[in-house]
Design a protein around this nucleic acid. Structure first.
Lengths: 197, 197, 197, 197
DNA sequence: ACCTAAACGAGACGGTACGTCATGTCTTTTT
DNA sequence: AAAAAGACATGACGTACCGTCTCGTTTAGGT
């Protein structure tokens, strides 16, 4: 993703843009989302407030862009032929990522802000969640064709059964994201998804 | 729940307490959580600001109490012997509830506030989510004893496979909460949970 | 004048009011009227901006009150029987006052602000200029009765002939306010005002 | 005056210069001096801000030039032999001019700005006030030679006795500039200035 | 007729101050 | 003693201008 997010104007200062992103991400980690202020970002970035207001409508939008900037293109899931192993491998890696404190503050803040702001939510989903989800859908559909997954399964919902418990635990702090949890989750989901017989 | 939230002090004005709850719930619907203010609540309720600060530490706490006040005791799930039917029945009812606009604003606001505030999150979970979750866990455990559910299933995770996709869709607006969705979800979860044979 | 300017409200903080006046007068001397800011006054006075905005509509109004607070009741002119001597005595004293740097900044600022703000101008005139003018008018009228001043003289205009050149020199910096100037001015005005014959 | 204010550079755009003057004079009438902004002038004139900053140091300077541009060369006072008549004639004309609304806003603004800005004040006096004053001084001196005015009169101060009450009334709004006022003023000043007999 | 350097329009930039709003604390008066 | 009312110091909001600084684009002269 990112790095093609060309400035909206040829006049725009790339230097300021970067400084704002850095400041926003640093500050959200230091003081939390609620105490993150546009003034704080501006002053930390050595930038006039207007420069932020000129290009973003809200602190959430700044944070979203800042966060997006740092996220790499999503690659497809591995396909070793062993569906369970593939899913466990990727979900374990994702668990590691979500357990990284530097990642938590901005992502959690954005998810929460999205709950109250439908517009922001749409962008958040389209830019961060949807691409992440699609690779799972694709992998399961592939598995459906090889017969690893039953034909009458609703793949989208199967993916939700896999990813939502994961996201929910993390977002609402209802549980730890351990490898054990991930493995059991994958196993129980696949159990319901495999062809019977 | 509710109705045991006795005044903390005999001196406390019940009338003010109700007025504050009413104002908070009305306002969160009207202006949204971010623009909900203590001053606004106080003035709408015809109450001094101090009366709010005296009894609650934050607007989130007010809202949580206000919301809790209106929620009824959770009853156990029905047990007709048909697990799928029981789950679909209750989840459909819950979908109706979550689709009610009056319910959405405060609940969504609390869920989001919880994401950024660990302390609030704990209360939110303990007061609203945990009781709701437990009845499912209980019902599945009962089913495990009758053999409807395999013995080696992690019931807690099974419940998450059922409820998280539901919550997630609603909270993040990733999809509609239709009866179709609920039914398919229940079916696919149970498929993975039933004893093999 | 002043010292009866009771707080507009029993709740009002006298301490803040004084601090604001002190800060305003000090600052207008230090940085000049144009660079005098509400924010600067508030911060120097150790007071919230709102406390200023609550009680005054503009920095000019603050300054006017601050200045007024320090000005004493105007007393009548002396009447030694020698009109010229009396006028010279008082005008010389006034010249000294107007040559005092601490007095200049706020007074000049107010006079200038009044030129562009009709509302402010009215208060400025009523509170500061009119009382100062009246004592001259009274003295001349008294002189008219003793026959020192001709009966057909327009006393108001005579006073303007005396005071306006004085004010104008000072305000527009068109000349110095020396004792010589004052004496000559009094002499030439009285020459035109005395009964002929 | 005017029409010799040649462009400082041959490259300079006459068109922009005029547009800036027009905009400045129009705007000062519309919004007043305090709310007159460089940005506003530039945008109204269809000109870049830099074009203003390139040629003038402040909005006061722009306004002063704009105003000066429209003022004609001062001519000497008429000398019909009747000093009182000559003075009344010219002062009445000046009263008409000062009562013209289009004239008031910029002139008042400049006078006020001059009170707080010594540098500006000097230019304002030299360009607008001094030439206006000199013609009166000249006329009175001529009268002194013909014996219409006593030899021991300080002519400069006599002129101030004539013009300052006039300016002061207008600038501070302490009175109307009527023909009656002008006539009485001239009469009372001349009374004090004529040789005694 | 071309070339070049200035002046130009546009407008982004780092700042300062604006006037408003809400915070959480406090004091005064009423119930 | 709790409550309504509301002043207070604090601090962020989002806006308006400041004066400086590039950007292309006219537009005069000088060649």
């Amino acid at each position: 993703m990112a790095n093609k997010a060309a400035p909206d104007s040829s006049r725009r200062s790339e230097r300021s843009r970067r400084a704002i992103f850095d400041a926003a991400l640093t500050l959200v980690g230091e003081v939390g989302y609620d105490k993150l202020t546009i003034e704080g970002i501006a002053s930390r970035a050595g930038v006039g407030k207007q420069t932020i207001y000129r290009w973003w409508p809200s602190k959430a939008a700044v944070l979203l862009d800042a966060f997006t900037e740092g996220v790499d293109e999503y690659e497809g899931l591995p396909d070793t032929g062993d569906l369970a192993a593939d899913l466990k491998f990727v979900l374990r890696a994702t668990a590691d990522e979500f357990n990284d404190p530097a990642f938590q503050a901005p992502y959690r803040a954005l998810a929460a802000a999205g709950a109250n702001d439908e517009e922001l939510s749409r962008t958040f989903l389209a830019r961060l969640m949807e691409p992440g989800t699609r690779v799972y859908v694709d992998r399961l559909r592939a598995a459906q064709e090889t017969g690893e997954v039953a034909a009458d399964i609703d793949v989208r919902i199967a993916v939700e059964m896999l990813l939502s418990p994961f996201s929910q635990r993390w977002l609402m702090r209802t549980g730890e994201l351990t490898y054990d949890f991930v493995d059991t989750l994958v196993d129980q989901v696949l159990r319901g998804v495999r062809p019977r017989g």
